[in-house]
């Protein structure tokens, strides 16, 4: 294999990981500041200018915290599950395109790690692995709150994955490809959010449930389950669960932007390819801010209503959406 290609992949992976981890750190700050503003407070502003060093302070604090492992916990699984949760959140970035090609020193560089022809399938497959981490965390802690949180998360994530997968189908049918780059290029003139508005709404709701964000944060439900699946976790292992949650938030926003909002492209305007990641970043920012905003507004759903919404509303709606899209595509050619 070409050495230069290997180095290129390595650099791009490092950039993606760096983006993911810094994104996680500063998303926690953004969330705390935004929630504070919505609640007419100021939020953390002591560590550094505008509180910019707060994530660093939190990180240092978590590193020096004692790592507790309950004596009756299943030790190997207990250690494994945070890793199992955070890994999919990181590797999901491999197929998300963040730009076209740029030329550096006579070498054409694609601004994505890889463009596999089953990109969307990869997304759904990788996103499903995270549920193992959370369920195993709940089970191996040997704690009833954690177990309940784990059970809830497995039921919730499995139910909402169906609607999520069906919402993926709309853009796939319109673009006629499962490659994410093809899907973005197919939205050159019209974002898929217009013909697939219902699909977009279903995707947003199911995506919120998939990353366990309010109002679908049943697995961690502080008030009922103390902290759900991560009740027994402390220190860096606890930080890994949070890292996974926030990176998944960014990832699901990136996927929503790619599938429905034109990814790294703006409609009609042709920007130089070097600005593509900026365009994608702005879209991700808006979607992530929306998630924080929803969290600040809506109370947690009751568990049976969550299941009813998933199975009785979102799944049939997604099926209807796929059916209508298919019929229209057949008739209009």
């Amino acid at each position: 294999m070409d050495t230069a290609l290997l180095i290129e992949w390595l650099i791009k992976s490092v950039i993606l990981l760096f983006f993911g981890l810094t994104g996680f750190a500063y998303l926690t700050l953004l969330e705390r500041r935004a929630l504070a503003r919505i609640q007419v407070r100021i939020g953390p502003n002591r560590a550094g200018p505008w509180g910019l060093l707060q994530p660093l302070a939190d990180g240092i604090k978590l590193i020096f915290k004692e790592e507790l492992i309950p004596p009756l916990a299943d030790k190997p699984l207990f250690i494994l599950s945070p890793i199992l949760t955070v890994l999919p959140a990181l590797i999901i970035w491999a197929v998300i395109p963040w730009g076209r090609q740029i030329v550096i020193a006579g070498r054409e560089i694609n601004l994505y790690l890889t463009d596999i022809n089953v990109g969307v399938l990869y997304l759904t497959a990788v996103a499903s692995i995270a549920v193992y981490g959370i369920t195993l965390a709940g089970w191996s802690s040997n704690n009833k709150y954690a177990l309940l949180g784990g059970l809830r998360s497995s039921a919730q994530m499995v139910s909402y994955e169906l609607a999520l997968g069906l919402a993926f189908l709309g853009p796939i049918m319109l673009a006629g490809s499962m490659s994410l780059v093809d899907i973005v290029e197919a939205q050159k003139n019209l974002w898929f959010v217009v013909p697939q508005f219902l699909g977009f709404i279903i995707f947003l709701l199911a995506g919120l449930a998939e990353v366990n964000r309010a109002p679908f944060d049943m697995p961690e439900a502080e008030q009922e389950l103390t902290a759900g699946y991560h009740t027994e976790y402390s220190g860096m292992k606890f930080a890994l669960f949070f890292m996974a949650e926030y990176i998944k938030m960014i990832a699901i926003s990136a996927i929503a932007a790619t599938l429905f909002l034109g990814g790294y492209r703006l409609p009609f305007i042709d920007l130089p390819p070097i600005l593509d990641p900026v365009v994608l970043f702005i879209k991700i920012f808006v979607l992530v801010f929306g998630m924080i905003w929803v969290r600040a507004t809506l109370p947690r759903l009751r568990y049976d209503r969550l299941m009813a919404l998933g199975w009785k509303v979102l799944l049939p709606l997604a099926l209807v959406n796929v059916f209508i899209t298919a019929v229209i595509m057949v008739f209009t050619g």
Partner: peptide, 30 residues
């Protein structure tokens, strides 16, 4: 299929508008 009622969607949007507005109020923090 039990679609959400119109009033429910309206209330959700109203709530979102209220939280959005409160973002531009002066913070009460001292």
């Amino acid at each position: 299929m039990a679609l959400p009622e119109r009033a429910q969607v309206q209330e959700i949007l109203r709530g979102m508008w209220i939280t959005f507005r409160s973002m531009f109020e002066k913070p009460v923090t001292i």
